[in-house]
Design a protein around this nucleic acid. Structure first.
Lengths: 137, 137
DNA sequence: ACCAAATTGCGACAAATTTGCAAAACAAAA
DNA sequence: TTTTGTTTTGCAAATTTGTCGCAATTTGGT
């Protein structure tokens, strides 16, 4: 129920602390669709310094707190599966909006097996589907 | 057989011309694995101006001539399925190399259906799997 | 409250990308 | 092939984006 609990646990486990700036960045991510670095930096303006936003997201990424995604040909950040349900993304190339697609166990399995069949050891993947959304058909 | 034919057709269809700089950039892409913008700019040095490389890739991307991929947390460009077999990418997070994975008809279908099931009209997708390659297990 | 360690903000930088504009290349038509 | 109007290019400057060192502040542990 309290998302800060998981966040704090993850940080302390890695000898890092839940500071105000980090909380602020986390809040910017909460309940939002994936955002670019520029947007995050701008939204943090006055509160958290640019360099700190960069450093925080790098840390969060390293600790698996956020995922860095390629959506609509731009990098965007979103909270990871620890805080959000696992899902994929659909990008509408007409209106530019991006949508969440529910995870599909069968698909996940098949993705892994495609890589395994070639001798690779998959740890994860990133899937973006693009085309038109229902509103833009 | 002649890749320039498709390229020229795509350009003229969009009231754009196949100029020398554009041909050069296209050649840099041909028969190569995905490359970063920086590499392309450097390889074009002396032949095509930096700004032109940027503008050309933006155009190519818009017309579906190239795909911009997210490989190992870097953007890379490669010719699209019109010029290359459709395939996926595997990124080894240990050695940093990236590999092509052959397309799998069953997987492709399933990806499309996942989106279609939610009311979207998929036109394509991008899949990057990451983990360890055979050499780095 | 005090101390040692971690973290931040603040420049200053370096690198990457964009932009305006005059010159050059181009396509179309005569 | 020459003209004409349009597109595209190169150049240089400006902007944006991302990085770095370091002193000042904050943090967690006593």
């Amino acid at each position: 129920m309290d998302p800060y609990k998981d966040l704090k646990a993850l940080l302390t486990k890695n000898r890092a602390s839940l500071t105000k700036p980090r909380q602020k960045v986390f809040d910017l991510l909460m309940g939002q669709s994936p955002q670019t670095m520029q947007v995050l930096v701008k939204r943090a303006e006055g509160k958290v310094d640019r360099a700190t936003v960069y450093r925080t997201l790098e840390l969060f990424e390293r600790l698996g707190i956020v995922n860095r995604l390629n959506i609509g040909w731009k990098y965007k950040y979103e909270l990871s599966d620890i805080f959000l349900e696992h899902h994929h993304h659909f990008y509408c190339s007409n209106c530019g909006k991006s949508y969440d697609l529910p995870a599909n166990p069968m698909l996940e399995t098949m993705v892994d097996s495609v890589a395994a069949k070639e001798g690779f050891s998959p740890r994860g993947h990133q899937l973006e589907i693009y085309g038109h959304c229902p509103n833009c058909r």
